[in-house]
Amino acid sequence: MAQTVKINVTVNGEQVEREVEPRLLLSDFIRHDLGLTGTHVGCEHGLCGACTILMDGEAVRSCTIFAVQADGHELQTVESLGTPDNLHPIQQAFIEKHALQCGFCTPGFLMTLVDYLGDNPNPTEEEIREAIDGNFCRCTGYFNIIEAVKLAAEKMASH
């Protein structure tokens, strides 16, 4: 057995302690060790954005971080957002604007946007495009995602 290291992380508000190999990617740790499979992996080289999560409130790509680097940090994944009966406003906006098709890229977009809209509650269309430029989607052409972000901003403002 390869050598392991003990890490302590807070994931979606819960403290977890695990032994991990130093080379284990944070994305694999979240998906396979913690079973939080909502975080998706599309490239594992930091380009597609599917694996985006929040680390101490900032959107990061979990495929370019080792699990050991998350030691002592606070993580948030898509599982921390809404439930079918109680959707997060961004999720609600995505549904209303048909901003997801296969839904594989969606968790990455959502986490990017939770961070972004938190800091920029009233973005212009151009700013929205810039904000999601690091997230790839093959299904939607981004058009409806842009509309969904506008709607989400409105919803969040009125909350």
Partner: peptide, 11 residues
């Protein structure tokens, strides 16, 4: 969508 967007599906 409600299930898909809340990660209650299986890829």
């Amino acid at each position: 969508d409600p299930e898909l967007i809340t990660a209650r599906v299986q890829f």
